[in-house]
Computed example of a mutant assay.
Amino acid sequence: MAVRRSVLTACPPDNSLLDAIVRVNATQDLMALRYGTPPATELTGDVRGWHFCADVLTRSDVLSRWHDEQRAWLRAEYGQAPDRTAAGSIKSWYLQAPATLGALLFHYERRVPSLRPDDLAFHVSSTGKPKPDVVALLSPRFACLPDDPAAETSEATVVESEGALAALLRARYAAHATRFVAAYRPPVRFGKHALWGAATDALDVALWKAGKQGGNESAGVADAALVLPDRIEPFTSASTLHTTLDDGQPCWTRRKESCCFHYLLDNGKGACDTCPRRSPPLMPRQH
């Protein structure tokens, strides 16, 4: 991995994204957040380590080695490693990094950070599945609402409403996902719809789970509906969160827009209940 100088030249001011990330990390464990470039000593170049998103999207060898690592893990766990299962894991895992960072800061802080590939890095777990377990934000800039305590700082861009902030999160995430789809589609046999389905899933799930982690699942569901209110291109659907019954009790679930291909492993379980291979599309929302 190419070692980059941090874009941060000084400690960020009070009420900045550093403070926000500290608060968010104390509340949730979906994925650890970090502010600033990891120390050069942690940039080993191995798959299980730190990766700059911009490097992953411009260097095919990084994705290739990540696939190899996932195939090795699948063989160790299941005795086989279908290419589509490995590729399905990578597409979902990568997209979770910008989606989770954006969702957590939006839900808990009503802030939208930069989600550009140049401004993000992620760490692949050193044990177990080779999936991201930490995402780092490298830029101090963010958008916020007028009543944000840091609204008047030089790093902040103020937008007028929650709806505008949600639209900005959607747009910034979509811009990053567009780069991923362009980079990932050539080496794998996934169509554009399948990749954008994975991008839709990652954002919808991240917003839902952000609320659930904080003890207010309904608020997470409301955020998902705010960010994905309809099928807005290039996303493949509105939020698919809906209620169902579990042992007679109402609970939230969602229909997936993409398949993880885990069913290809010889475990006899088939596709999961919420997989688009088994579950019909939801009816369009009524306005």
Rank of each mutant, 00 (worst) to 15 (best):
S6T: 13
S6C: 08
T9Y: 05
A10F: 07
N15F: 09
S16M: 08
S16R: 04
L18Q: 10
I21Q: 01
R23I: 00
N25M: 06
D29P: 00
D29V: 08
D29L: 05
D29I: 04
L30C: 01
Y35M: 15
G36W: 09
T37V: 07
T41H: 12
T41W: 01
T41L: 12
L43H: 07
L43D: 11
T44R: 06
R48Q: 13
G49M: 06
G49E: 05
H51R: 08
A54C: 10
V56R: 03
S60D: 14
W66L: 12
Q70V: 15
W73K: 14
Y78Q: 13
Y78G: 04
G79E: 11
A81C: 11
R84F: 09
T85H: 09
A87C: 02
S89R: 12
S89Y: 15
I90N: 12
Y94T: 05
L95N: 02
L95I: 00
G102E: 12
L105H: 01
Y108F: 15
R110W: 05
R110D: 00
L115I: 12
R116I: 00
P117G: 08
D119Y: 04
L120T: 02
V124T: 03
S125Y: 00
T127L: 09
K129E: 05
P130A: 02
P130H: 02
K131A: 13
V134I: 15
V134K: 12
A143I: 01
C144Y: 00
L145F: 04
D147N: 14
P149Y: 10
A150V: 11
E155V: 05
E155D: 15
A156I: 08
E160A: 15
E162S: 15
E162W: 11
L165I: 04
L165T: 04
A166C: 01
A167P: 00
L168C: 10
R170M: 02
A171E: 15
R172M: 11
R172F: 08
A174V: 00
H176Q: 14
T178I: 03
V181S: 02
V181R: 04
A183F: 05
Y184E: 06
P186N: 05
G191Y: 08
K192N: 11
H193V: 14
W196M: 01
G197W: 02
D201Y: 07
D201P: 04
A202S: 15
L203K: 06
V205K: 04
L207Y: 03
Q213L: 05
S218P: 00
A224W: 01
L226S: 08
P229M: 10
D230Y: 08
D230H: 09
R231H: 07
E233A: 14
E233H: 12
P234T: 07
F235Q: 06
S239A: 12
H242E: 07
T243V: 10
T244C: 08
D246G: 03
D246C: 10
D246L: 11
D247M: 11
Q249S: 13
P250V: 11
P250S: 11
C251K: 15
C260P: 01
F261L: 09
H262Y: 14
L264C: 07
L264R: 14
L265Y: 02
N267H: 14
C272P: 02
C275E: 04
R277H: 14
R278M: 10
P280V: 10
R285C: 01
Q286M: 10
H287V: 11
